[in-house]
Design a binder for these strands. Sequence first.
DNA 1: TCTCCGATTAGAC
DNA 2: CTAACGGTCTAATCGGAGA
Length: 426
Amino acid sequence: MQSGNQKPQQLALVDCNNFYVSCERVFRPDLTNTPLVALSNNDGCIISRSNEAKALGIKMGQPWFEVKALAQEHGILALSSNYALYADMSNRVMNILHEFTPHQEVYSIDESFLDLTGTHRLRDVSYEIKNRVLQWVGIPVCVGIGPTKTLAKLANHIAKKHPRSKGVFNFNDLNEQQKNTLLSKIDVNEVWGIGRRLSERLAAYSVHTVQDLKLAHTATLRAQFGVVVEKTQRELREQPCIELTEVEAAKKQIISSRSFGEMVTDLNVLRDALSLFTANACQKLRAQDSHACMIQVFLCTNRFRSELPQYNPSISIPLPQPSNDTLHINRWVDYLAGKIFKPGYQYKKAGIMLSEISPTTHKQLDLWEPQEQANTNLMHALDAINARFGRKTITVSTQGAFKSWQMKQERKSPDYTTNWKSLPFV
DNA sequence: TCTCCGATTAGAC
DNA sequence: CTAACGGTCTAATCGGAGA
């Protein structure tokens, strides 16, 4: 709780500009002025746009096929997403940011919150952050600072949008009058946590701008929109409600799923895909030292093809004992897939979900069930080898043997930073 | 009436 | 050639079932 005469926190939100396309440009400086977009899995939707692409009216999340003609006309280059590259670039950026404070929350692949409270010459430090990331990694970032996370986010939005800020904006530097004027000019849907639906519903209460939300009647807000929106309002009123979370909490559920490059009709192909999803999910489970008690398998037909028969089954099963063993869980996944599979449908997507997750240290032994012989050492060795030599060095059985389900990625750039073979001179 | 549970919704990126 | 629309995760909330 923030009292009136206390100095406000200086929370910074550092956000990379157009992150995916900026990563691509680091290795393709010739594309600096080319309108550029990055595509989602299967080259489906646009998930990152350069400023030039934005200026041409390309929308975030727009299906690629819808803009293909426009793209052709204006020479827009589209690239398949290269997650190995983006993850590696992200690590480099986050490590640099960490040098400025131990109090860091890596919020997403391209954003970190930093608690810079007590930093001297904060303005200079902010520009130093921006310049160092640009010089060392080649990624442009903007820095927004505020007394709460929500206001830091908003400050970042302002830094991005207004060229006069030169990429840095500190909300704490404003006086009350300036704050009110500024917040009255920004749409409420720019606020962190206020999406499209809430914006529409808020409009019915004459809440259109950030300032409107800040001044709205709190009890009504709480009653009509719930506790989340109330917290957002408090944060706009400079009352911190959302803590910096410096250590990432263990996941409570892990989903691994994917749309296929082509429709799949064969159970064996589905099992092949599912075995890869299982391997990925179990590896995540082991990486956070936990195991799961509940396995769910689901299949989906293509919901955008309404003329085709639709079938979206899912099935889940509780394990007698928690497990994180790929081989063990894969046997259950195979079994469950067989139970829900019906021939005659064209499947577009499948996946698994692991839930009821707990730390391995808390293993609860069931006295009546004979203990499953867990391949703990085998899994440990598998993770180590795959970490060293690449994710698919050792796989389970036929994992990935069938090509048909694999993602369409017709426009992927090389793995410049994570694969020696991608370098032209090696 | 209370509690628990699963399903649904909404949001973020 | 044509058709083509992502993947993960969390928290809140709601409604029904069962105690």
